[in-house]
Design a protein around this nucleic acid. Structure first.
Lengths: 133, 133
DNA sequence: CGGGATCCAAGCCGATACTG
DNA sequence: CAGTATCGGCTTGGATCCCG
């Protein structure tokens, strides 16, 4: 049990996202960023080519997808497999580490999707009371 | 069938975050946004006051915390409990819905924290090969 | 203490054009 | 097909000041 009131909540763990300087925050932001999560989610079903991915992640621009992919690749979550053919063919797939992240992410995504009716209802109630002012 | 080109695009599932127009994307962004995840995570252990929360979520500004809290409250994930005392006391706590989201979020956060050594190592490898150019 | 309002810098991100 | 480079608008988000 916890006698001290100062809980860092992870005295035994080396990384703590709640601390400003922790590097896990950066990775978390790549992963939960606007396109990071959807990109990892899309790749969970299997490897995809650049433009396939673009169509899957509806609304992402070339630039942002490219940027997102680079960040994820650098963090070791995505692997890039380029064949020097003509026309070029480049496949992106999750690393084992990426699969672990994507799994948790999809878990969250699906949960939220499943609760959207409640969320939308809550919004209406909120806007009724607050928006009336 | 769908003769018009304006597709509501979720014939089998009610919500699909991969579709550009799906409202779940908005909620997902509140939840996975820069401060949303950490805020929900911090509240998972119990209700907190505004400035307690601010200290927990290291680095967040008043403005962003306030903004984040409003969005989460509107989505029905956080409840605000204000006592009209002097000085004022306002407690924030998760709703049952918020607990469900926070659980999945913490799952992701802890997983990433646990893999940071691998991530950092991957970054070094990436920078060695690509940064050398 | 618990915020709201404002100003301003940094960056996110899309559109476009170009390369291999 | 698979990207990179650049420009520019719009948003994000921090700092500051203010109020109940």
């Amino acid at each position: 049990m916890d006698t001290t009131q100062e809980r860092t909540e992870a005295q035994d763990l080396p990384y703590n996202a709640f601390a400003k300087a922790c590097p896990s925050r950066g990775t978390l932001e790549h992963v939960t960023g606007r396109w990071g999560g959807l990109t990892l989610g899309a790749l969970y079903e299997g490897s995809l080519r650049f433009n396939e991915l673009r169509r899957r992640v509806d609304g992402v621009s070339e630039k942002m997808l490219s940027q997102t992919l680079h960040a994820l690749q650098r963090d070791g979550l995505v692997r890039r497999d380029a064949q020097p053919t003509n026309p070029p063919r480049v496949d992106y797939e999750l690393t084992p580490l990426g699969r672990g992240v994507a799994e948790r992410l999809l878990n969250l995504i699906h949960f939220v999707e499943g609760q959207m009716d409640d969320v939308l209802e809550a919004r209406v109630r909120y806007d009724e009371t607050r928006g009336a002012l």
